[in-house]
Computed example of a mutant assay.
Amino acid sequence: MECARSTDFFNGSAVVTLQLFDGTLDRTFCPTFGGTDDFQVISKLVETPTVTPLALHALSLCLLVLCLVFSAASILISLYNSVSNPYQTYMGPIGIYACSSLSACLSVLTLIIFVVNVNVTSMAEDLVKLYADNIPVDLRNKSTEMGLGYYLVIPYTVFCLVAIALIYMYDHAAYTQRKEQQRPTEDAPKEIMMY
């Protein structure tokens, strides 16, 4: 974003780089000479005047943790069912459906919440103003760019959906095979039916 003191023209800039827990603020003449500052995201967001960016960032972190928990549950259920007695499964395909679909939904929700937090709220502006040393600062032309970590959540969502599709196809094939084995004797030859 472009930066200037409230009485000057816009000759400075500020770049805020956010990760899940750490962040970096690079300032050039914003509002003074500037510099590079590293910070902890949660602790700095606590100092900002608005609560919304902190709540949305904490919600994103919690949803990502839940995604990992449901993924681990899906893997453990799959492993248990693959090595257990075939007549005794734990939650069957329903457990994998539930865990994988919850992971996919929560990951999509996390993507949306993070974009809203970065683009709609004044999180970046508030962070720049915290480092302005009580000098009134005007900020404009804010632009955002998502990093690699953000885009890695998309393949995770796709893999969760692929797992649901594979389990559905396997369950459907097993159901079809069971139905064919239980087919009534109307297709059997007449000689067999006489006995």
Rank of each mutant, 00 (worst) to 15 (best):
E2M: 10
C3Q: 00
S6I: 05
S6E: 01
F9Q: 09
F9R: 08
N11Q: 14
Q19R: 09
L20I: 13
D22M: 01
L25E: 02
L25R: 02
D26C: 06
D26L: 06
R27Y: 01
F29S: 06
C30P: 04
P31E: 02
T36P: 07
T36F: 01
D37T: 15
D37N: 13
Q40C: 08
S43Y: 03
S43T: 11
K44F: 12
L45C: 08
L45I: 07
E47K: 12
V51F: 11
T52D: 12
T52H: 07
A55T: 06
A55S: 11
A55D: 11
L56M: 13
L56H: 08
A58E: 11
A58K: 14
L59H: 07
L61G: 10
L66Y: 10
L66N: 11
C67I: 04
F70C: 03
S71Q: 10
A72C: 12
A73D: 05
Y80V: 06
V83Y: 13
V83G: 07
V83L: 15
S84C: 12
S84D: 12
Y87M: 15
T89Q: 10
M91V: 09
M91T: 07
M91L: 14
G92A: 14
P93Q: 12
G95S: 05
G95C: 00
Y97S: 06
C99D: 02
S100F: 03
L102P: 01
L102F: 15
S103Y: 06
A104H: 06
L106V: 07
S107L: 10
V108A: 13
V108N: 02
L109K: 09
N117I: 02
N119Q: 15
V120A: 15
M123W: 00
A124T: 07
A124G: 10
A124S: 15
E125H: 01
A132C: 11
D133P: 00
N134T: 00
P136N: 08
V137R: 00
N141T: 08
N141V: 01
T144K: 08
T144S: 15
M146V: 03
G147C: 09
Y150D: 04
I154T: 11
Y156C: 04
C160K: 03
L161Y: 08
I164W: 00
L166Y: 12
L166T: 12
Y168W: 14
M169R: 13
A173C: 06
A174F: 04
Y175M: 12
R178V: 02
R178G: 03
K179W: 09
E180H: 07
Q181R: 14
Q181Y: 14
Q182N: 13
Q182S: 14
P184K: 07
P189H: 09
E191T: 13
I192L: 13
M193K: 15
M194G: 01
M194T: 12
M194N: 12
